[in-house]
Design a protein around this nucleic acid. Sequence first.
DNA 1: TCATTAAGCAACCTCCCGGTTGCATTTAAT
DNA 2: ATTAAATGCAACCGGGAGGTTGCTTAATGA
Lengths: 112, 112
Amino acid sequence: MPGSGGDPGFAEIFAALGDPTRLAIFDRLSDGQARSIASLSNDADMTRQAVTKHLRVLEMAGLVESHRIGRESRYAFCPDRLALARAWLDHVAGRWDSALMRLKSFAEQSSD
Amino acid sequence: MPGSGGDPGFAEIFAALGDPTRLAIFDRLSDGQARSIASLSNDADMTRQAVTKHLRVLEMAGLVESHRIGRESRYAFCPDRLALARAWLDHVAGRWDSALMRLKSFAEQSSD
DNA sequence: TCATTAAGCAACCTCCCGGTTGCATTTAAT
DNA sequence: ATTAAATGCAACCGGGAGGTTGCTTAATGA
């Protein structure tokens, strides 16, 4: 919603995306295929534990869901919070655009 | 661009937005009016120095521009990186949607 | 049954982030 | 000329983020 710059919820979402590793994981999961921690750890130059922590951050932010199957826990993309983040950015961009519009119409009116 | 989950540039943008104070400042500036540090400090429950640091982070990420006028430095909204961030989120959301589409068509085909 | 694989938990470490205080500097106002 | 306002710079601090290692436990496979 408008004027929600102070809402800590949005900040949490962006903060979760504010790390190259997490961004890569999130991007990777966006193809719809759920993956195990071990699988995601293979192409991240760090320990499985580190990847686990990143996944927890993404999950806390609601960007990702996990469910255990047998001995492995699979993480899956979760679109809801992503939509929220997009809506917020759209709102800000829209406000900026309308500010530009007002400025433009004022300039045109002045030069009449 | 696609497959750019590992690009540190995007992470920097999201990280800059990943703090309630900076989010509020960015939202505030989106009305097109440039503001001084002192002005922005008035409605943030912290020191002017803290606000200054936050503004530097936003500026480093390219979300905001500053120029000095007389004794005060005014910070202004900067739409380019915002557009980049929106494009990245759109890309991820699009990939997710097409994954859903494939899944749906597969399900329909299977049930034929 | 026994070895292996996937993961969880906990302790630890380093470094940076968010925030503060104190002081110096430049510009504006009186 | 003096005073006040707006900012910059540097040092400092506590806590949490990002990462590692070591050990334990649960599930799979041979």
